[in-house]
Write a protein that binds this DNA or RNA. Structure first.
Length: 875
RNA sequence: GCCGGGGUGGCGGAAUCGGUAGACGCGUUGGAUUCAAAAUCCAGUUCUGGAAACGGAGUGAGGGUUCAAGUCCCUCCCUCGGCACCA
């Protein structure tokens, strides 16, 4: 018995090679490795192009988000290489972080070992994707040869006074006695212990990012290659606002409360002040007030995230203390409020219920006075008893300021306060200094030694790096092992020599990811953080990564770049010239309710859907037990929803080229992309169709005079060059890879329809096939490599240049224009490209179908849009 | 809650500068091929009326500007990302 595939291969029709990714892909990868195709060095004769995809956290498994991100970067890199540029595309590992600690607790493996094994696995998977990386520059942030330089840099910043220590709030698990990350707090409780989480104040290190706030905002203007939405988010995050800092004297102890407001024009409407629960004033009153102390205690049980603070139920408690209004001298009560944060500004705010929605809600809740001091600029009236009026307007009930508009009153009130030394105009930022301390193990040790006599002292350069001990044992509380290791923390003071204690906190992992892009340029340098090679390659010409990094990572690395510039390490002002933010990868989710009231998530690979004759899904059934499951729509691929698709399996089944093709064809890069198994099969189908047409023409080496083609061949050749023109624009300027692929599919469809066996036809066909293979080679490089050889070329396709548009081929004599009557399409006309408007108008009116709609009407106007349409306005 | 996106056929998406809405792909329907199936190929496929020619409606909802609106303006609804210790 013969297998079907054998029967097929014996049929002369199918004697040509079958497409087989399992031989094609390793062959191409071997060629690139043998020829060191992607190793680059500084070459001043070529234009450089630094293309960087955000490096992954080495979880051990490549997921579809990586596949998409790295395919996009690879396509751009290979396209730019074909434009003749010296392209650098490196890869490395964002190797510190929480998951390694979790794995250590769960599987009893030290984080270092777990991480190393994961890196080895993921490197293999990335290579199977055929990504054009210069692996000689690979780096892992958990290695001392990397993190020693950020320790060194931190000590430089410390010398410059850009680093300081202050108390700040963390999530504290009172049972496990550990600090928890926000994601480790679930419904207000520690994820492991289940204990109610408390806020705790501890001393931590901060970087003065606020000192660069203005530059971070101002230079967003220069980032023309960034998406507008990311630029807006960056500006809003820094949040520069002009306002007035106002001093309120407090009756009880003659202290003053300083508050910041952007609306000094509403000052006369202040009816109370609110301070944070942790404010010294609140704490001192609470000493003799048990109820207030209880309230403050209750306020500790909230998560320290802004989203939580903003959405909690607003609660407050009166301190019984009165403050003096700086202008009227009236007494206003001071309240403690759970939504005022001690870490923002001074931890106190002035409240104007009539003109601020949050203050209004608070005053309604506790029956506090609402005093309207602004009225609308027009003649409308507002009732501040029903809602706050937050617009600017004209001042009322404000004594000497009555009748001024909000803008003028801003200045006059600020001036009056300044004269009385009760306030000043200031600029306030929403941006807070960057807290870089983490009380975790798997991170870069902060290079500081605490001495009882000398205070915190930076570790001297000669003693760097401070190595993180890698042979450690975790207990189930998840506390950092180095905090229990005297051999790590016991040391001597570098300045006085007495016994001292090493800092056991580690850096925020954003610290590592803030400068890795620069280190790739000189990853082998053991003598310095960076060298002159950084200035050849930087800034990064194209950065690609998830939209979820639009604010934090990108802001921190912009900041870090400026710090490095001011240290003389780099010359440029900004790290990333162009930015492409890719959307997430989504997949179908299915579930069943379980007995515990929760949901059992079922992997989409185990679900079959039934459709009606229009293709609408009418039922989803598990293939495991044949029973119905409930569809919960599309959501981000994740473990928790059990809707991940493993790229490893797909690479084996379909090959990397198919996966690459599908992952950028399914949606434009900046939008989220929905996973579809049948879509992958469609991508494979296209690859096989191209393979077939190309391999049927490998012996076709006919060249012919393109000046004397028949009309239909001329049209086909025009299609080839129109496609090339579009694809060049789509890939080089717009990153519209999905439409670039669609255009190639369209061209392949046209070429497949050609059954003319003449020499001229075969020459055009060959030109078309070769153009497609070249245009798609950045996307499906393995197949491009193989087909290019088969088509008879000596040079590998990786070294070929991007094809050139033949402008002669684009010339057209006649074009089609549509004819509208009152904006509705009623006919089509063929027009000579040089026809004047008058003759086009006549042609349009003579169209048979158009006449049906203009008879018995009067033509009012005829609009001709060159090359597109004619619109006849008639009634 | 605040900041920033998105919403177009059964589905993913296209329409780049205000000018033919639905390219391309998936799914689906019919046909060819096959003993049969898979694969492949051909044709149809926004809804709706019609045998067709050709009409009517249609880009989340409602209003507006314009000869012309998916695209611009206003109001609203839904949804996704981020919110500083996930990375």
């Amino acid at each position: 018995m013969l297998h079907d595939s054998q029967k097929l291969s014996m049929n002369p029709e199918f004697m040509q090679d079958q497409y087989n990714h399992k031989t094609i892909e390793p062959n191409a990868q071997q060629y690139w490795a043998d020829n060191k195709s992607f190793q680059v060095s500084e070459d001043t004769n070529k234009e450089k192009f630094y293309c960087l995809s955000m490096f992954p956290y080495p979880s051990g498994k490549l997921h579809m988000g990586h596949v998409r991100n790295y395919t996009i970067g690879d396509v751009i890199s290979r396209f730019q290489r074909m434009q003749g540029k010296n392209v650098l595309q490196p890869m490395g590992w964002d190797a510190f972080g929480l998951p390694a600690e979790n794995a250590a607790i769960k599987h009893n493996v030290p984080p270092a070992q777990w991480t190393d094994e994961n890196i080895a696995d993921m490197r293999v998977q990335l290579n199977q994707m055929g990504l054009a990386y210069d692996w000689t520059r690979e780096l892992a942030t958990c290695k001392p040869d990397y993190y020693r330089w950020e320790q060194w840099f931190f000590t430089k910043l410390y010398e410059k006074g850009l680093v300081y220590r202050k108390k700040s709030t963390v999530n504290w698990d009172p049972v496990d006695q550990t600090v928890l990350a926000n994601e480790q707090v679930v419904d207000g409780r520690g994820w492991r212990s289940g204990a109610l989480v408390e806020q705790k104040e501890i001393s931590q290190w901060f970087l003065k990012i606020t000192a660069y706030a203005d530059e971070l905002i101002d230079e967003v203007k220069k980032l023309q290659g960034w998406p507008q939405r990311v630029r807006t988010m960056q500006v809003n995050w820094v949040g520069r606002s002009e306002g007035v800092e106002i001093k309120f004297e407090v009756e009880a102890d003659f202290q003053t409360l300083e508050v910041f407001t952007t609306r000094p024009d509403t000052l006369m409407g202040v009816t109370y002040l609110a301070v944070a629960a942790q404010h010294p004033l609140a704490l001192s009153v609470a000493e003799n007030n048990a109820e207030l102390a209880a309230f403050i205690q209750a306020c500790k049980h909230t998560k320290v995230s802004e989203a939580d603070m903003a959405t909690i139920e607003k609660k407050g408690y009166p301190t019984g203390i009165m403050a003096i209004h700086p202008l009227t001298g009236e007494r206003v009560p001071v309240w403690v409020a759970n939504f005022v944060l001690m870490s923002y500004g001074s931890g106190a705010v002035m409240s104007v219920p009539a003109h601020d929605q949050r203050d209004w809600e608070f005053s309604k809740l506790y029956g506090l006075e609402i005093k309207q001091v602004i009225r609308p600029s027009n003649q409308n009236t507002v009732d501040t008893a029903t809602a706050a009026f937050t617009d600017k307007g004209i001042l009322i009930n404000s004594g000497e300021f009555n009748g001024q508009n909000s803008y003028d009153a801003f200045d006059t009130i600020a001036e009056k306060l300044a004269i009385q030394k009760k306030g000043n105009k200031t600029i306030n930022y929403r941006l807070r200094d960057w807290g870089v301390s983490r009380q975790r193990y798997w991170g870069c040790p902060i290079p500081i030694i605490h001495c009882d006599d000398c205070g915190p002292v930076a570790v001297p350069e000669k003693d760097l790096p401070v190595k993180l001990p890698e042979q450690v044992v975790f207990d189930e509380t998840g506390g950092s092992p180095i905090k229990q290791m005297p051999e790590f923390y016991e040391t001597t003071c570098p300045s006085c020599g007495k016994a001292a204690r090493r800092e056991t906190d580690t850096f925020d992992t954003f610290f590592e990811s803030s400068w890795y892009y620069a280190r790739y340029t000189c990853a082998d340098n053991d003598d310095g953080m960076l060298d002159e090679r950084a200035n050849y390659w930087l800034p990064v010409d194209q950065y690609i990564g998830g939209i979820e990094h639009a604010v934090l990572h990108l802001l921190y690395s912009r900041f870090f770049h400026k710090l490095m510039r001011d240290e003389g390490l780099v010359e440029s002002d900004e790290p990333y010239k162009n930015l492409l933010t890719q959307g997430m990868v989504l997949a179908d989710t299915y579930y069943r309710d379980n007995e515990k009231g929760g949901k059992d998530w079922i992997n989409p690979q185990d679900v079959k859907t039934k459709t009606d004759d229009k293709g609408r899904v009418i039922e989803a059934i598990s293939t495991l037990d044949g029973k119905t499951v409930i569809s919960a729509g599309m959501s981000k691929m994740s473990k928790s929803k059990n809707n991940g698709v493993d790229p490893k399996y797909l690479i084996e089944k379909y090959g990397a080229d198919t996966l690459r093709l599908f992952s950028i064809f399914a949606a434009p890069p900046n939008q989220s992309m929905e996973w579809s198994d049948s879509g992958v099969e469609g991508a494979q189908r296209f690859i096989k169709r191209l393979w077939r047409l190309a391999t049927q023409n490998i012996n076709n080496h006919i060249r012919t005079d393109t000046d004397n083609l028949s009309d239909s061949l001329r049209a086909l050749r025009r299609k080839i060059h129109q496609t090339l023109q579009k694809v060049t624009d789509d890939m080089g300027e717009r990153f519209a890879f999905n439409t670039a692929i669609a255009a190639n599919m369209e061209l392949l469809n046209e070429l497949s329809k050609l059954h003319d066996k003449s020499d001229a036809a075969q020459a055009v066909l060959k030109e078309g096939i070769e153009t497609i293979v070249l245009m798609l080679s950045p996307i499906i490089p393995h197949m491009g490599h193989e087909l290019w050889i088969k088509l008879g070329h000596q040079k590998a396709i990786i070294d070929e240049a991007w094809p050139k548009v033949d402008t002669q081929a684009l010339v057209q004599n006649n074009i089609e224009m549509i004819v509208q009557v009152n904006g509705k399409v009623r006919g089509k006309i063929q027009v000579n490209v040089n026809a004047d408007d008058e003759s086009i108008k006549i042609l349009a009116q003579n169209n048979e179908n158009v006449q049906r709609f203009i008879e018995n009407t009067t033509i009012r106007k005829i609009i001709v849009v060159k090359g597109r349409l004619v619109n006849i306005v008639a009634n």
